[in-house]
Design a protein around this nucleic acid. Structure first.
Lengths: 195, 195, 195, 195
DNA sequence: CTCTAAACGAGACGGTACGTCACGTCTTCGA
DNA sequence: TCGAAGACGTGACGTACCGTCTCGTTTAGAG
């Protein structure tokens, strides 16, 4: 259980860098974000950035996912009432991505995924798999208890809910704003169509 | 009805440039696509590019929308059977975006929108409004004829269908592949929930 | 006799860049001179520098040789009196290299030559061959007219005079300062030893 | 006569580092020599380098002067025959600097001196003062014994001899090669001109 | 047929960011 | 305290791309 030789990496820099990325993303898009600016704001050498992240895309991805993981990942509640649980989940996420700061971060993440040919799949998995699995599990549970028909595909439901949110956040603050009633209507339609 | 003086623009260049963009996007992401490469492949001076498009984003947008408009814009059929019409529309689009070449183009368009802070809204409108309006009109028509409940919000349905497609195309060829049965199940759930 | 296609290089930039190099060399050594600083002072993109010079060494060399060629290359006079002619030449050059600005430029040239393994020979030839040939010719003329012994090697004399100047300029303003009497004494010793 | 606390410095490292510098200088110029490479080749931490030398310039200087002091510093002989003594000295040094390995080291030293504005004088003194003083003393002795005229300036002679060598070593292996006869001719001219 | 004017291929240009590299310092561990 | 290892801040390196510009050439309509 020994330590590799040499000076160990400064763990506090990690958080400082991710903070710098997020702060800069509030006022600039992914393309406008420069590694030099990140290094300058985090008071860090560029070498330190490239020692830890291969390029801008994974750095931005980690910065966004880090924030998302801390404040934006609402596990699907399980009160026994699927309809109410999905209402809760969708409204929570809808409010989260409506927050301009959060919307900017998510747009940056999409840009990071779309930027490089190779990394996009990995990034999307990091982002969507945890969210998806909560939803899928909750729906599958409802199927198992007989609350939903046996032939319901949980993936279909998860896709419709998450896709609605993604489309909304990518459509911009104006075009995509859905109100609570619309979230409710979506869940109602899906649930009523599945019973 | 006179013509401005000077040599008129060569109309054939337009298509050549858009072709070059699409060919390059098959092997590179939006960020990796350079205007120099487009000019070189289209055998065109860079000045000619900037004479016709303000920057990379609208050029890519037009290249993608041009292809989408030619082969991928399936208007919503209206056979009187809403369920069947939505089945048709969703399956057609699902197959279109499953084609790897088409998926790459759409990802590039999303990247173009996500890349620059300002242009994203305009680009999204170009892309989504025509698609959305067909869907919304079809659903609203069903509401008007009494085939759907009067309180159904067509935007909610359009969002769910388009969002499902967007999420699928962004999730990569592997992770997001839905099959025909799932498209059917989604439409069924929504329709059954809305009657 | 046509011109290659494309925008031709701006000839005026050449002089502006060389001026910028010389101005910067007055306040910084060769190592402290950065290509970025040159580009900034000359109001020029870095690409323009590298389009015309492969690296810092040949750029500095040309900048120095350009100035040397304009103001510092004193041809060897030929009044018939070899001793007086060499006096004149050596004193002129001695005064030239004693000028701090000139000394700095020459030191930079030496550094440029010493910096890169490969280029040094070429640089030295550019600098020393023209100077040397004038001296050698003048001495050889004196040999031919019988003013000097037939077995005198003009290269030996040229080396001694130029070497004295080089050592002086490299030794720094303090350590190497020779006065006019010493130049005279050197020429006298060489001439008297060769008659 | 006590010893400072802590682990004493490993004296053998000094030689290992200087060796590493010299080995690297055989295949790279001063500018191409990196402290990291020195540390790696000498199997030494960089901190150890900077504990002993303030920067690259003095390290290279010591490495070169160390070699020069061991094999290349030929004191001026004093056989009573000044002409023969200067012959000996100049030929010895000429052969030393003609050796390619030695030439590279000296070029590196010149580069080290020319690199930084401040250090050059100090380095030049280390290199030239010991050499110069031997020459000057020998010539002054000859003046004192009446072998040379009373008004001979020993510095002038020392400059001409050392300058010839410096010019030769900087001119590259090809351009600057003088042969023994030319060294003899130089000394003869100077001596005969000074008697 | 000349003249004017704009489009065109080519490529130089200023600027900005990239990702790498070296310098010289600092921080861990073990000797 | 010294030493090896290596992370660190700083800043220059040389490259690539953006969007503009400046050439000489080409292609139209106007006179």
């Amino acid at each position: 259980m020994s330590q590799p030789p040499g000076r160990p990496r400064d763990a506090s820099l990690h958080a400082a860098i991710l903070d710098a990325v997020r702060e800069l993303l509030l006022v600039s898009s992914y393309a406008e974000l420069s590694m030099d600016a990140v290094a300058a704001r985090a008071q860090v050498g560029k070498k330190t950035l490239y020692r830890r992240w291969a390029s801008k895309a994974p750095l931005v991805a980690e910065a966004v996912l880090d924030a998302y993981g801390r404040g934006g990942s609402f596990s699907v509640p399980d009160t026994g009432n699927l309809r109410a649980d999905l209402h809760t989940w969708l409204i929570e996420h809808g409010e989260f991505i409506t927050e301009p700061a959060n919307a900017k971060l998510i747009r940056a993440l999409v840009a990071a995924a779309a930027a490089s040919s190779g990394d996009s799949d990995a990034l999307y998995e990091q982002l969507s798999v945890p969210q998806r699995s909560g939803l899928v599990d909750r729906v599958r549970g409802a199927v198992d208890t007989g609350a939903l028909r046996a032939d319901v595909d949980p993936d279909v439901i998860a896709n419709a809910l998450m896709g609605t949110l993604l489309l909304q956040v990518m459509s911009g603050p104006v075009a995509g704003s859905l109100v609570v009633e619309q979230y409710v209507a979506l869940v109602d339609a899906l649930v009523d169509g599945m019973v």
